[in-house]
């Protein structure tokens, strides 16, 4: 029983690690203010779930989840390219709300609030994942590969350009680099891995509905990244472990499930507020939030 529970937590940690590291690539490393990341994660989950429900293989589902999320990521950067500050933040939050209301209203495609049940477990090369141990192994491998790729990007010359763009966009342009292109590419990488994380989540939980990708999830993601610290990959990994464990530890007590949900969100919100107030750079953050 406890063993199953630990495996469940470990799987969630792997998924949230990919998700939060990808968010940090946009927010922390490139300074892209976006509150739409959960929507991109949801778009990935829906893409993958719908494709596999239509009979396409899992591998095409997960990859297209990343690609479709990346396309929406580009759309987001492109449409908001002239906005700054509050207005940029609200436009991206508006994007998240629009995505939510499409998911809930386009019942012909998404079944709306009923959600999509029976999403199959991942299958690769004719081998279908059955147990949670196999699932954990699989998401762990995907997480390691994803983080290795993102780590390599932020440490490369391009990563240096991303950080320079965050610090001073005009300064980057004066040195002959196309700041918009840098932001668009960084956002697409970030969105791609958010889509991958969304796909993994859908195929693990096997059920998604629009509420899964709404405000509470935005707070959860912000908590992980801000607790861990902006522009730190290790920070986001630690943040994901910490926040998922702290959030789920309540289940060990014999609380009625009506109380568990709200209590968990209260913990996240309080944690987030405390970090913002008392340790604005989080555990390992290298930069202040813009």
């Amino acid at each position: 029983m406890l063993e199953n529970y630990i495996i469940h937590i470990a799987i969630l940690i792997c998924i949230y690690t990919i998700f939060s590291v990808s968010y940090n690539v946009a927010l922390g490393y490139t300074g892209l203010i976006t509150l739409a990341h959960v929507a991109l994660y949801g778009i990935g989950a829906y893409t993958s779930a719908l494709l596999t429900r239509a009979g396409y293989p899992f591998i095409s589902g997960i990859l297209l989840a990343g690609v479709v999320a990346a396309i929406f990521g580009f759309f987001l950067v492109y449409t908001t390219r002239k906005l700054k500050g509050d207005y940029l933040a609200m436009a991206t939050l508006g994007f998240a709300f629009v995505a939510y209301s499409i998911e809930i209203n386009w019942t012909g495609l998404t079944r709306g609030a009923l959600g999509l049940p029976g999403i199959v477990k991942p299958a690769l090369f004719g081998f279908r994942i059955g147990s949670n141990v196999e699932m954990l192994l699989f998401v762990f491998i995907v997480a390691v590969i994803s983080i290795a790729i993102m780590w390599r990007i932020v440490r490369s010359g391009f990563g240096r350009l991303m950080e320079a763009t965050r610090d001073d966009e005009t300064g980057v342009e004066v040195l002959g680099k196309n700041a918009f292109a840098i932001k668009a590419k960084a956002m697409m990488i970030s969105a791609f891995f958010a889509g991958i994380a969304g796909s993994l989540f859908a195929h693990y939980i096997s059920y998604i509905d629009p509420g899964t990708f709404y405000l509470t999830e935005i707070i959860l993601l912000l908590t992980i990244v801000i607790v861990g610290g902006a522009a730190s990959m290790r920070g986001s990994i630690i943040g994901a472990v910490l926040v998922v464990v702290v959030g789920d530890v309540l289940r060990l007590f014999d609380l009625p499930s009506v109380l568990i949900g709200p209590s968990r969100h209260i913990i996240y919100a309080v944690l987030l507020l405390c970090v913002l107030l008392y340790r604005p750079r989080g555990i390992l953050g290298r930069v202040d939030l813009i």
Binding site: L161, E163, G171, V172, V174, N178
Partner: peptide
């Protein structure tokens, strides 16, 4: 006008290289 979270090396790497790929 400098990039406040970067090092001297980073600045000159960016300046010298015209590669954005």
């Amino acid at each position: 006008r400098l990039f406040k979270h970067l090092t001297i090396r980073d600045h000159l790497q960016i300046a010298i290289s015209d590669d954005e790929s």
